[in-house]
Design a protein around this nucleic acid. Sequence first.
DNA 1: ACCTGAACACCGTTCAAGT
DNA 2: ACCTGAACACCGTTCAAGT
Lengths: 163, 163
Amino acid sequence: MALSRDQVVATAVDLLRRYGLGDLTMRRLARELGVAPGALYWHVANKQELLVHVADALLSEIPPPHLGQPPAEALVGLAYAVRPGATRALRDLAGLVHDVGVPASERDEVAALVVHQILGSVAGQHNRRLAALADPDLPPPDAAAEAKAFEVGLAVILRGLVR
Amino acid sequence: MALSRDQVVATAVDLLRRYGLGDLTMRRLARELGVAPGALYWHVANKQELLVHVADALLSEIPPPHLGQPPAEALVGLAYAVRPGATRALRDLAGLVHDVGVPASERDEVAALVVHQILGSVAGQHNRRLAALADPDLPPPDAAAEAKAFEVGLAVILRGLVR
DNA sequence: ACCTGAACACCGTTCAAGT
DNA sequence: ACCTGAACACCGTTCAAGT
């Protein structure tokens, strides 16, 4: 039966989780799917687009933050969902904002801004959920900066997976 | 005359600045130096070590923070030194900590911790200057996490240079 | 001590041709 | 519509052999 893009992306996520970013290559992915490398390019324009879909898939696994949940905790949830144990840095950062004694009226905003600044441009227009965590009144980052930041932001999210 | 490691690193920095991270390959670097690719491996163990030295070179260009300079401003200096105009995200982050109304007694600590969290593991044991910006009482990140974080941290610093 | 030449085992991407 | 086979232009790294 024919391959689907969802299948390609799911296998990519699996490869990423099992062997790390260094083994997430188009050729390795094709091998894993029992298909020629060129076949992938029917379902996905290029590797960069594949990574966008991988990031999207990772984000979609995160339960939506329930009402009133502080962004700092939502961040921890996000990081934890990617891989347990890979989240020390992110948790420390969120905890830091939470614990330092920022007035309650500003704490969520600070956390949201920090999260937004670090992760906000991840996955470009696909990160609706993350965007919702951050301040909705923030001016959206311009498209060029967003594109450039994608690889970096993704790397931050996936840092625990990098071998 | 014989190549030196300093020469290799300097050319790598130049390549990085002119064409971005994507063009900083061992082969391209060798070509730029008029030398065979294998020659580089006399001066540097592998590409990862080269990147450590590149990061070190970038950090060494930054003037040491003068006494009493808030870490947030030191961060801006760091980011700006890498490349003017590539620093919006970092500057926003620093400014955020600075402006949000964190009590003066805690502001520097917050900024230092944020900086430390994001950049603190860059360049491993080479980042003495950066480490000095962060809280000296912080437990040093373990070596494995540090190694894993290097690539990511470097990418954050160099985000403006990535094509 | 320092470098070349040549190889090894990979990459991402394209594209005619097949079904 | 979907995929193969084969190619193109690259990678990082190693290592005998040269000087």
